[in-house]
Amino acid sequence: MHPIIKLVSQRLALGLLLLFGASALIFGLTEALPGDAAQAVLGQSATPEALANLREEMGLNRPALTRYFEWLGGIVQGDLGQSLTNKLDIAESIGKRLGNTLFLACVAAIVSVPLAIFLGLLAVRYRNRWPDKLISAITLTTVSIPEFLIGYVVIYYVSVKLGWFSSLAMINDSMSFGQKLNAIALPAFVLTLVVLAQMMRMTRAAILNLMQSAYIETAELKGLSTFQVIARHAFPNAISPIVNVVMLNLAYLVVGVVVVEVVFVYPGMGQYLVDAVTKRDVPVVLACGVVFAAVYIGLNMVADIVSILANPRLRHPK
């Protein structure tokens, strides 16, 4: 078998195994919390009899392992269960909100990834001179400030003072694509600022590391310009570390978007999760946890696979 196929299928299998482990961990942890779904539905003042009855009705008396596999079986078939609070099908609610979150994350990614890589290349080109220092200073500043603070500062200046964009990033199906983009401009901007620094620094470090290589000297001695050397000879070898940090940040864009969504009142997964936690809606929390885990593991798996594919030694064995 071609070594690439073998390695890639190993990664896929490992990803599934990890996802399985993550689901067990999520289930186990919510199990370990004090109180259960019945307690949550009936509230603190419920009588023990009422609780017992409800537990019987919801099947909470059965062993945790049985319930875990029932729940897992449901997930595999696309059934995430029902919300305790509004009795709606969770899969349906999540589907829509996940779509919104992915839309926001995609827009932020489309802006931030090329920008970060370009800034990284620029920083290498002008290493230790003012453009490099300026880029590092700005990106490190924005990554060091908590995102909710950036969010509120941006709202204050851009939407309150200047009135350019709405502070609320509400979107719905009746809006056109352009209107949607307009609505999410501010949260996408804040997210970009948050993830830019790490990707830019990694691009810079990975390429600087390669610039010491003998083949970079060969390229310089061919009379290529510095930017040609970086883009043609250093960048193709830096793909693997860069893709890894990009995927990590994309995962963050999906999973870590919670705070920004709340600040901008954006109807995405983050809002949904925060609502469910405040209402102790355990099945929803579980479902969100699994979806986040799947996104995280999936993106990192993609990074691994891209790294494998980017390695000429694996792509073209002897």
């Binding site: 290589s213 003998a214 083949y215 000297e217 060969t218 310089e220 001695l221 061919k222 000429p312």
Partner: peptide, 19 residues
């Protein structure tokens, strides 16, 4: 560089871009 004067290094293995 690369036009009038060119260079052959000691370690071709390191001087060729692996990618």
């Amino acid at each position: 560089r690369g036009g009038e004067v060119t260079y052959v290094s000691q370690s071709a293995a390191a001087s060729f871009n692996p990618a």
